[in-house]
Amino acid sequence: MKKLFVKKDVPCMACLECVRACSTAFYKEFHQDKACLKIVERNGKVRPMTCVQCGKCAAACEHGAITQNPKTGVYMVNKKLCVGCGKCVEACPFGVMLQVAGAPAASKCIACGICVKACPMEVLEIRES
């Protein structure tokens, strides 16, 4: 399964370049609330919070709009089936599932790697799990 991982021993400097890359790629503007990853502080350390592809969003979707790609293992939102109810957002234990105001469908990390390429500290990586 393809996943976005946060490297354990690499410090994040909270520059938000990963957030910028994600929100700009998907919503054409830099906005922290429009990125499929968040920068959080825990125990005095700043770290990216990313989708772990747990599938809780898919289980919460009553319309079958979120399915797992059988080849990559990544959960994806079918924008044609999504009604924008937000139940997937509520179900996400990491707060990285998005329902952006004005957008007709929810969105989530698809492990595209754009954030990985943008990170100057190389904190993020895409790998098979």
Rank of each mutant, 00 (worst) to 15 (best):
T67C: 07
C22W: 00
K7G: 02
I66E: 01
M97D: 09
V123K: 08
P11K: 12
C22D: 06
C112L: 06
P104M: 11
P104C: 02
P93W: 09
G102F: 08
T24F: 14
H31W: 04
E122T: 08
G55D: 00
A101V: 13
L4R: 02
K56M: 15
L124C: 10
F26H: 15
A60D: 06
A91F: 05
V74G: 09
D9C: 07
L4T: 11
L98H: 10
N78M: 04
K38D: 01
H31R: 15
V40W: 09
I66Q: 01
C85M: 05
G44R: 10
K7I: 09
F94H: 12
M121S: 15
P93F: 10
E90N: 14
N78R: 03
C57V: 10
G86E: 07
M1V: 14
N43T: 00
K34S: 10
F94N: 11
F26A: 12
C57S: 08
V46P: 00
E41L: 06
A59E: 14
P11M: 03
Q53D: 07
G55W: 01
A111P: 00
A35G: 02
K34P: 05
Q99L: 15
P70Y: 11
M121W: 14
H31I: 08
G113R: 09
A58V: 12
G73W: 04
R42L: 14
V77R: 08
A111N: 03
C109W: 03
C85R: 05
Q99A: 10
F30D: 03
V96P: 01
C88K: 07
M97S: 13
V74S: 07
E128Q: 13
C115H: 03
L98P: 12
M1K: 14
V83C: 13
P48L: 11
V46A: 09
N78L: 04
K7N: 07
K45T: 15
E62P: 01
G73H: 08
C22V: 04
K80C: 00
K117L: 07
C51G: 11
V52F: 03
C15D: 03
C119S: 08
Q68A: 07
E128V: 12
C115G: 05
I39N: 04
K117Y: 07
I126K: 11
Y27M: 07
C61V: 04
E17V: 01
A60L: 05
G102W: 09
D33R: 12
H31V: 10
Q32S: 11
G64E: 15
V83K: 15
G95E: 11
A105M: 05
C92L: 06
I66W: 01
L4K: 02
F30Q: 05
L98A: 13
C112T: 03
T50G: 01
I39F: 04
P48S: 14
S23P: 02
I66G: 03
V83F: 11
A118Q: 05
S23V: 02
C22Q: 02
A105V: 01
F26D: 14
V123A: 05
A58N: 11
Q99R: 15
A106V: 08
I110K: 10
S129Y: 13
